Amino acid sequence: APRKVEMRRDPVLGFGFVAGSEKPVVVRSVTPGGPSEGKLIPGDQIVMINDEPVSAAPRERVIDLVRSCKESILLTVIQP
């Protein structure tokens, strides 16, 4: 079942996760003590960023979407 995860941007750590460059977009790592800790799990597949589906989106679009979130971000993720 999809999970909705909302995180506030940390001034130092950002959102505190690293996503892979393949499709679908998969969470590779979560920064300890960062905003994503306890919310995202490595292996989570990101299916939506805010209200935009990203399963088939180019990597550049995913990066732009994350960067455009100055304060908070809403991710919809699934464990494949």
Rank of each mutant, 00 (worst) to 15 (best):
A57H: 09
L40R: 00
P24K: 02
G16S: 01
D64L: 03
I49N: 01
P58R: 10
G33Q: 07
E71C: 07
L74R: 15
V12C: 10
P80G: 09
G20M: 10
T31C: 08
I63Y: 09
L75A: 04
P53A: 12
R59G: 14
V62G: 00
T76W: 06
K23L: 10
E71V: 06
S68Q: 14
S21M: 12
P35I: 02
C69R: 08
R67M: 10
V62P: 01
P35E: 04
A19R: 01
G16V: 00
G20Q: 12
E6R: 12
P35L: 01
E37V: 10
L75N: 02
V54N: 00
V18Y: 09
N50S: 06
G43L: 04
C69E: 10
V25P: 13
R67N: 15
R28G: 13
A57P: 01
G16N: 02
V54R: 00
P32R: 11
R9A: 10
V30M: 04
Q79A: 15
S72K: 15
P58N: 11
V26F: 07
E52Y: 11
P35N: 05
G34E: 00
M48V: 07
D64Q: 13
S36L: 01
P2K: 11
L74A: 14
I73A: 06
R9P: 09
V27A: 03
V26W: 04
G33T: 06
G43Y: 05
L75Q: 03
G43W: 04
V18E: 13
V66E: 03
R8S: 13
V18D: 10
I78G: 09
G38R: 07
L13S: 13
L75M: 13
V18L: 07
V66L: 15
S72L: 05
K23G: 13
P35H: 02
E60A: 13
R9H: 05
V5T: 04
V54C: 12
R28M: 10
S29L: 07
P2R: 13
S36M: 03
D51H: 15
G20E: 15
V12M: 14
R59D: 04
F17T: 01
P53T: 11
G16D: 01
K4G: 02
K23M: 13
V26E: 12
V62D: 01
C69G: 05
T76P: 02
L75P: 06
R28F: 07
G43Q: 05
L75C: 05
L13F: 11
P32V: 11
P2F: 13
S21G: 15
E60F: 06
V26Y: 07
K39R: 12
P58L: 05
E22M: 05
G33F: 08
C69A: 14
E37A: 12
R61D: 13
I63F: 15
L74N: 12
E52G: 04
K39Q: 12
R61P: 03
F17Y: 04
P80Q: 14
S36G: 11
E60P: 09
P2E: 15
L75V: 08
E71K: 14
V47M: 12
D64W: 05
P24S: 03
N50M: 06
S29I: 05
R67S: 13
P58H: 09
N50Q: 08
S55C: 06
G34F: 02
S21K: 13
D44K: 00
I73N: 04
V66S: 03
P35R: 03
I63D: 12
E71F: 06
G38P: 03
G20A: 11
D10N: 10
G38C: 06
K70Y: 07
V54A: 05
L65A: 10
R61E: 10
F17M: 04
N50A: 07
G38S: 07
